[in-house]
């Protein structure tokens, strides 16, 4: 009888919907939405050292973490650098990711396939490399001693005469540190744009490209009037997606700061600040981290909604074609 009812439910329209949506929505609810709300709740508790039993029911000073955060932001001698770095880093890296991804996609699209595959694989490596090893590679690349790879190349070319401390030299700050941050994160981000744009370009009907060529279009004209307009939507998507990703990026910065490659404060973004607050041994202050993350999330939410509106959400949601 129960099986009979289940069967009739599953053949109903509502049943179909439940069948298709339930697994994804359940997972998103359990591992995304509930933790999200819970971490806002945690920001009202003095949770630290991972000790839930001890602190999670303590709501005696619910706004304490926000007060401390506010206090920190208004009193910490270097917090201004963190805020500025977050803004500049997000903005610059976003441009690098989108423009770089676009350039790479165009180049690999226009060149012959055997080169193209090699470069696409190469540019995907940063995404595939374990973060610790990836950080290590760039640590030695940008290291300020004469052993740093960049320095040793520039020295032997005679461009510079003594090693440059790219990430910490006060004459180069903050741009030296930012350059490294943007470069290292940009390389990881570029591959996302590259793959999306490249596949979008390949899905442009061949006839369009041929027609343009037959009409005598130069490569620049082809790019400008045919290729770019047809992937406009993808550019918007990548921009939004990367913007939200960058706001929350910390992993590829964390070790570079810890190892002293870049200035501690000109190299710390808000997301890294959250991570450090929650996870370094000096401060396993997870209530405070949750508060800082909540602020981050609020910013992300606003930015996300604005960009969704700008890019025209309606356009995205073509009406379903599966209705009987």
């Amino acid at each position: 009888m129960g099986a009979e009812r289940l069967r009739s439910f599953l053949t109903s329209r509502r049943g179909h919907l439940a069948f298709f949506l339930a697994p994804a929505l359940t997972l998103i609810t359990i591992f995304y939405l509930v933790p999200l709300i819970l971490s806002i709740y945690i920001s009202l508790t003095p949770l630290k050292y991972w000790q839930l039993n001890r602190y999670l029911t303590d709501l005696s000073h619910p706004l304490e973490n926000y007060y401390r955060l506010f206090y920190l932001v208004t009193h910490h001698p270097d917090i201004g650098k963190v805020v500025i770095t977050t803004i500049v880093f997000t903005g610059l890296t976003l441009v690098v990711n989108v423009v770089g991804g676009l350039l790479l996609a165009l180049a690999t699209y226009l060149m012959e396939e055997r080169f193209s595959l090699f470069y696409r694989t190469l540019w995907l490596l940063p995404r595939m490399t374990p973060i610790a090893v990836y950080s290590l590679l760039w640590y030695y690349f940008f290291h300020g001693s004469r052993f740093g790879i960049l320095n040793s190349i520039l020295l032997s070319l005679g461009v510079i005469h003594k090693p440059v401390w790219w990430g910490v030299d006060e004459k180069l700050l903050p741009w030296g540190a930012w350059m490294i941050l943007v470069y290292v994160n940009g390389l990881v981000g570029v591959s996302f744009g590259m793959i999306i744009f490249y596949s979008a370009l390949r899905s442009i009907p061949r006839e369009q490209v041929m027609a343009a060529r037959v009409d005598g279009a130069t490569t620049t004209q082809l790019i400008r009037y045919v290729l770019i307009p047809s992937i406009k939507w993808h550019i918007v998507f990548v921009t939004v997606w990367e913007l939200l990703s960058l706001l929350t990026t910390y992993a590829h910065i964390f070790l570079l700061v810890e190892w002293g490659l870049i200035d501690k404060w000109w190299g710390t973004t808000w997301a890294l600040f959250v991570f450090n607050t929650a996870f370094t041994a000096q401060a396993l202050d997870q209530g405070l981290a949750a508060a800082a993350a909540t602020v981050l999330v609020a910013i992300g939410l606003v930015l996300g909604l604005i960009t969704l509106k700008i890019m025209g959400f309606k356009e995205l949601m073509i009406e379903p074609r599966g209705e009987l």
């Binding site: 995304y32 939405l33 819970l38 929350t248 959250v274 993350a293 999330v297 379903p320």
Partner: peptide, 28 residues
């Protein structure tokens, strides 16, 4: 394929979720 109430809102929510970093969620 299926038209249902809240479809757009859900899609939007799914997109916005990306703003929440894994590191902020891990404690919860």
């Amino acid at each position: 394929r299926i038209r249902f109430r809240g479809r757009k809102a859900l899609m939007q929510l799914v997109m916005i979720l990306h703003a929440f970093p894994g590191v902020a969620l891990i404690i919860a």
